[in-house]
Amino acid sequence: MIQDILAHYNYWIIMVLMMIGIYIVASRGNLIKKIVGLNIFQTSVFMLYITMGKVEGGTAPILTGKPEVFSNPLPHVLILTAIVVGVATTALGLALVVRIREAYDTIEEDEVRDQDNATVAEEMSRAAR
């Protein structure tokens, strides 16, 4: 039983990272921290692919002319793509945070929400008039 758990230690790490990532996204109100959480979450997925692609005794999938056992190159390719996507997402997210700071003067989610609720309340009272 312990052997089973230890044999799959990569999956345990992946799960822990995934949960930490999602927890940060859900529980932290600071917008930048949310993006950090998102990144951790995405990193766990990268780990899933990469560890999945490892072949026992395999080396880096680079053709050198000598016959060798290679690790599966496809997950590496996939993850490169996913990393790029992740970087783009982070960049966009951070750019949005900058704009939010400029517009709201804060990067705390609850303060932004309070300001928005105030705007909505003002709109409703104008509508009622």
């Binding site: 999602i22 996204v25 917008l31 949310k34 993006i35 998102l38 979450f41 995405q42 997925v45 899933l48 692919y49 999945m52 496809l74 997950p75 996913a82 996507v85 997402t89 966009l92 997210g93 949005l96 945070v97 704009r99 939010i100 517009a103 709201y104 989610e109 932004v112 929400r113 928005d116 705007t119």
Partner: peptide, 28 residues
């Protein structure tokens, strides 16, 4: 208010896409 709207969309959309990728990884 478009800014927090876009941000929330980003967070939720990315989580969704990542879930999709996890599923895809498992299938692969």
């Amino acid at each position: 208010r478009a800014l927090p709207a876009a941000y929330n969309y980003l967070v939720m959309g990315t989580v969704g896409a990542t879930f999709f990728v996890i599923g895809l990884g498992l299938m692969y």
